[in-house]
Every structure is written in structure tokens, then in C-alpha cells.
């Protein structure tokens, strides 16, 4: 047991050398909001929801190594307000129309918005029109819901040992692309049981024919907050498969 500690919201938290602030917080069951982070996959630092204040500087908790004596503000009204604004931007940049999305209730973006008390999108809606790929027999890729968190990119490379996804383009033209000769999911080597097929935190990658097995109102985030769910889901093996 390490005797090195950091302080998160006035709570002393032990950490091991090499752990990030996020690693140490999750191990101590302290919730730092996050969307693009999944323990076991390399940190990405793109969603910025885990922004915390370390000795007066705003940093991403998932990428910054913990260091002895850091004083960290996490669950403050100011940080949560900024996190809410980030979440609003993620919502309006995609077609996150919950009533028409089969991921509703199991969507981490939606649960994050609940957690932060988001009532509206605030900004003008983008209503993007990106290509939908329903070519695969068991999977569908709706790019209009992708938040570019790269969880599927990393899961495919680091866990599945494949290289199915990547992000291409700049600014509003950024989008998820598929590594196959045709660019279609059907021609890639993704399989239904791959982690990359199940890790999407939103409704961008969906498993066909299983969307409504659990009725709305009884889904993960209908029953648990995102904080409870993420603290309970520390091991990669907890990722739910469609046949469970």
C-alpha cells in the first residue's frame, strides 16, 4: 500500500506511482465525471468532462499522473457548470434526440446530462447529416450520434486486437471511419462479440435486433445514476454483452 496521497475535495486519496488522478479517484470510489475514459484502455483526454482543478490549473483527470500533495477540486458548482456546458455542446453537435434513440436509458451521455441537471441544449442545434452504415448483419453505425470519444477505436486496437475504427477529418467534418476496403462495417473484421461493438457510450454503434429487449424505464440509467454505474464498472469484463 502506497503512503503517497493526493487530496480530492478535501478527502485524502492514496495512489500508486503511475496512476492518473482518475485511476486514484476510481479506486477510492470518488466519482469524477467522464465519457471518453474506460479503465483498462489507454486514457484519451478528449471529452474534457473530467476537467478538475489541480492547484489552480484546469487539467484532465484521466491523463494527468497523480503526484504527491496535489490539491484537487472536483465536485464544485463551477466545474459542474462547465461540465454541463460541454455536455450541451456534445448534445447539439449530434442528433441526440432521445425519444427516437434505442440507446435511451443506457446512454452515458444522457446519464451525464441527468447527473449535471441539464434541461436544454442552450446552443443552436447542428442537426448533422453524416453517413449511416447499416451494412453489417448485426451492427449499425449512426455517425450522427458519435461523440468522437474514440472508445471503440481504442477497444478495437487494445482489447480486440483489431483496428476497425479511426477518426478522420478536422473540425465539424471529423467523423468515425471504418478500416475496410469499402469503408463499410460489413467489410471490416469486426464481430458482434468484440468489445468495440459494445463499448459505445451513446447510440452510435448499436447491436441490431436487441434494442428494445429491456423496456424504457427499466434500463441502466433509469435505475442508477452515472456515478453509481461508473464506480461499479471498474473491470473491463463488466461490459455488457447482448446475450447476457
Amino acid at each position: 500500500m502506497s503512503n503517497k496521497t493526493i487530496t480530492i475535495d478535501d478527502i485524502e486519496v492514496p495512489f500508486e506511482e503511475g496512476q492518473t488522478i482518475m485511476d486514484a479517484a476510481l479506486a477510492a470510489e470518488i466519482y469524477i465525471p467522464h465519457l471518453c475514459h474506460k479503465p483498462g484502455l489507454s486514457p484519451h483526454g478528449s471529452c474534457k468532462l473530467c476537467t478538475v482543478d489541480v492547484d489552480g490549473r484546469a487539467v484532465s483527470a484521466c491523463t494527468l499522473p497523480a503526484a504527491e500533495g496535489q490539491r484537487i477540486d472536483n465536485n464544485t458548482p463551477a466545474l459542474n457548470e462547465v461540465r454541463k456546458t460541454i455536455t450541451q455542446m456534445l448534445f447539439i453537435e449530434g442528433n441526440h434526440l432521445c425519444p427516437s434513440c434505442e440507446k435511451s436509458g443506457d446512454c452515458t451521455l444522457q446519464a451525464m446530462a441527468y447527473h449535471l441537471g441539464m434541461l436544454d441544449g442552450h446552443f443552436p442545434q447542428f442537426y448533422p447529416q453524416r453517413e449511416l452504415d447499416a451494412s453489417h448483419p448485426t451492427l449499425v453505425l449512426d455517425r450522427d450520434r458519435c461523440i468522437l470519444c474514440e472508445l471503440c477505436v481504442r477497444a478495437s486496437r487494445e482489447y480486440d486486437g483489431k483496428d476497425v475504427f479511426a477518426i478522420s477529418g478536422r473540425n465539424t467534418n471529423r467523423q468515425l471511419i471504418v478500416n475496410s476496403a469499402t469503408g463499410r462495417l460489413a467489410d471490416s473484421d469486426i464481430e458482434t462479440d468484440d468489445m468495440a461493438a459494445h463499448i459505445c457510450p451513446v447510440g452510435a454503434i448499436l447491436i441490431k435486433d436487441h434494442g428494445y429487449e429491456i423496456p424504457i424505464g427499466r434500463r441502466t440509467f433509469d435505475l442508477h445514476s452515472v456515478a453509481e454505474s461508473d464506480l461499479g464498472e471498474i473491470k473491463l469484463s463488466n461490459v455488457r454483452h447482448h446475450d447476457e
Partner: peptide, 14 residues
Amino acid sequence: ACAINGGVPAMRNH
């Protein structure tokens, strides 16, 4: 939802 972000009718925006 419709008043707040367009909702289901906004699916035609595609």
C-alpha cells in the same frame, strides 16, 4: 423534447 430540441419531428432534418 420537441420544444427543447426539435424531438421526433426534427428527424426530418436529415
